[in-house]
Design a protein around this nucleic acid. Structure first.
Lengths: 214, 214
DNA sequence: ATTTTCAATGGACGATCATCCATTGAAAGC
DNA sequence: GCTTTCAATGGATGATCGTCCATTGAAAAT
């Protein structure tokens, strides 16, 4: 008969799967994606060689799962800020900015992983997919908030304004992440946030900066 | 006796060096940095195996030269815009923005190469160095222009304003490059430029957008 | 207690990797 | 025309890569 879904053996299998994903991400952070070999991963996880093939079909499958996990981690952290913000559009925008640049989200680990996969995304569709997903969700969220603000303020062409504001905000945040990647020591989160809010202040009369800040 | 510096043999050596660098960059663009092996490079260049060791000391040395070349290409293209702009600070800023987002600078090839190396930059100091260099030069150039504008406009704390404007502009441009990387088909250069200039319009009363545009 | 199930193991495998060096041959110097 | 120089060659080398599968052994089912 088939095993129960939560039998001792299935649970151990789940733990091993997680351990392999974590070992993969750890390795990418510490020695880079190019040096992250199967041997390196199993050494870190303390598991056997064949387990990658067993659980993920191969190294490629493991990497896809690792990207997926990294994306989930990003969203789980950001969601904490969004839940605190509630429904007001300014608060939601501020939550995205403050969350995206918070030390729990924008970390050494996060940028290492993100940029490692970005470099590979061009020829691996499965990896590119998850870069896209992140972008899509934030895009929709910000656009709706900005459109609501633009309409409330009675601006001309609120959809166009909202589209530009969304595009600009996401581009600014992306740029800040790159800045953190290249200058991790001198990077200043407060300055980064101030600049993003300064951009938003140019497009709307509403104030964002203090809302949703910790 | 030693060969003349521009002897037929030296010239051929230079051509081969260039061919290897171009083959490396082509390979990175087409099949990704992970698949770019020594065998792949020499196949593309039509040269022999040992030549990489002879001219660059090894694959690492070749990659460093390739990053350097990619950086030079970026600056050479951008310089065409800066030379046209002349000395007025607004024109110089506009030249950077219009140049950085021009199709001769922000291309499929450029983003492929740039993001491939970024992913490796974290553990390879020599590669990170050239990412830094690019950043440093633009940083100085923009800061001086913005400070001059801020002083002319009689703004409070011109240095702070200039620092924020520089930081924000570079972050926005970085973000636009990432946007192009992920959505090469739907990317709109005109929209990207409009958003950057909108950001600048928020910080200064001077107008930038029409200056330096083609 | 016995049988069945299957997650886990780890060595074998062929492929491919980057490096290196003895040899070559055409260009440069005399 | 002869000698010297050295860029260029490409096969040999050992290391490392990811995949695969026969075997194991503990947990689950009977």
């Amino acid at each position: 008969m088939a095993l129960k879904n939560n039998s001792k053996r299935k649970k151990q299998a789940d733990l091993n799967r997680r351990a392999l994903i974590e070992a993969t991400l750890d390795s990418i952070v510490e020695i880079g994606i190019a040096q992250t070999s199967v041997s390196e991963i199993i050494k870190r996880a303390g598991l056997s060689r064949g387990m990658i093939h067993l659980h993920f079909g191969g190294k490629d499958g493991l990497f896809v799962s690792a990207v997926k996990r990294a994306g989930e981690t990003y969203y789980n952290n950001l969601n904490r800020f969004l839940e605190k913000a509630g429904t007001p559009p300014q608060a939601r925008v501020a939550a995205v900015v403050n969350g995206d640049l918070d030390e729990t989200v924008l970390s050494n680990r996060a940028v290492s992983i993100w940029y490692a996969f970005r470099g590979e995304a061009r020829e691996r569709k499965t990896i590119a997919e998850y870069s896209d997903t992140r972008d899509e969700r934030l895009n929709t969220l910000l656009f709706r908030a900005f459109r609501e603000i633009a309409e409330t303020e009675g601006l001309d062409e609120p959809a166009t304004v909202a589209r530009d504001a969304t595009h600009g905000t996401l581009a600014l945040l992306e740029g800040m992440w790159t800045d953190f990647l290249i200058h991790p020591d001198s990077f200043d989160r407060a300055v980064a946030k101030r600049i993003v809010f300064r951009f938003l202040a140019a497009m709307f009369s509403a104030h964002f900066d203090l809302m949703g800040a910790k």
